[in-house]
Design a protein around this nucleic acid. Structure first.
Lengths: 202, 202
DNA sequence: CAATAAATACCGACTAGTTGGTATTTTTAA
DNA sequence: TTAAAAATACCAACTAGTCGGTATTTATTG
């Protein structure tokens, strides 16, 4: 695949994601995507097998970008402290800060968006979504295990559920941000989660 | 409007909600709704001005049912304790129990589902969605204010954000439940919120 | 109490436009 | 010159919505 093609594909993917996050997957037509991406039908179907293939590639791209962001933020956090709890708390702060810096309203999470119309997809795509959420769970769970190893928690908690609470607060915040058109909701809900961890372990 | 008509409308609304929660709003065609609801095109358009009118009426119905459920649960909770914190904690437990009793996977929240494709709706519908989330916020906020009036919180928190955390945990739990096909996620995320309140105020 | 008028509830064929997708041709760059 | 990349033209199925008409209630009145 030449550079020309990879540019085109990325342009299609970026355009499609933007529209789909606004209107939903079914609410977005290929015609609109190719129009905004400045390509034609033939071009689109050269690069993608069909609309479902587009969804698949969008999720893969989204999860990749996401893994990179979280990796970077944890790398920063790990350099700022040696304490597992502090590292996690710093990560949450960095994540919240990154969102706070956005100028426009956060477009939302592709994983959540597609989940709410997932009955029209095949199992492969639902599995990709599941894998994404599982990866977030595992990422936080590993950190929580390190925290729990050296500190008792004030109340008995299942660490997996506590790890899922990260996804819960992020997705909940994204929803509120979208509904009220204000990114600060993402920040506050993430910081609620941070406070929860402090109350449990500090 | 005779009884015959009100039955028909309710049948259409219930059918439509079910399909829309599975496939999304755009992913659901009127043809499929009328097919499953055993009515015809003409019948549908006699009762609804169009597809957007259907969405409007679905949200109104959803928020009504929801207000009734929360009202009932708080009434129960208020009878079981005089303490504001306990009342709120009991409410959360009752809500979680109600969901745990469901046999099938919870179909999800219409408000969240429509939010993820809200760009295709007019402002009226977005406002209805906003009003719904605001009503949840106010409902919990009033309780939190009563709690805060008689107890200091362990850490400084904005009560509005803490009230929104109820929506966050509910919606986050619903999302996890759908992705992993397991209602227990709703329960655990609600109980995480409950734990958070206990850690803050108990 | 009937006969009838009028409103309500519903039907199903139809249309104009949109949808995802294909087959064929042209352009581009190595 | 040739293979990849993109454009053009097209199609069949589906879409939301319309329309003329019919069945069923409900209201009116002689």
């Amino acid at each position: 695949m030449g550079k020309r093609a990879s540019n085109t594909q990325e342009r299609i993917l970026a355009t499609a994601e933007q529209i789909i996050l606004c209107k939903g997957f079914s609410g977005t037509s290929i015609d609109e995507i190719i129009d905004k991406a400045a390509i034609t039908k033939g071009g689109f179907f050269y690069h993608f097998e069909g609309k479902v293939d587009l969804a698949r590639r969008l999720i893969l791209r989204y999860l990749e970008q996401d893994a990179k962001l979280f990796g970077d933020l944890f790398e920063q956090a790990d350099q700022l402290s040696e304490d597992p709890l502090q590292q996690l708390l710093i990560f949450l702060k960095l994540f919240a800060n990154a969102i706070e810096r956005l100028e426009e309203t956060h477009p939302g999470c592709l994983v959540a968006g597609l989940t709410y119309e997932n009955q029209q997809f095949d199992e492969e795509i639902r599995e990709l979504i599941r894998a994404g959420v599982t990866s977030w769970r595992e990422l936080i769970l590993r950190r929580l295990e390190a925290v729990a190893k050296q500190r008792p928690s004030k109340l008995a908690v299942e660490l997996t559920e506590l790890a899922d609470m990260f996804t819960t607060c992020t997705e909940g915040g994204l929803l509120l941000a979208r509904i009220f058109n204000d990114n600060r909701h993402i920040v506050t809900q993430l910081l609620n989660y941070r406070t929860h961890l402090r109350l449990l372990f500090e």
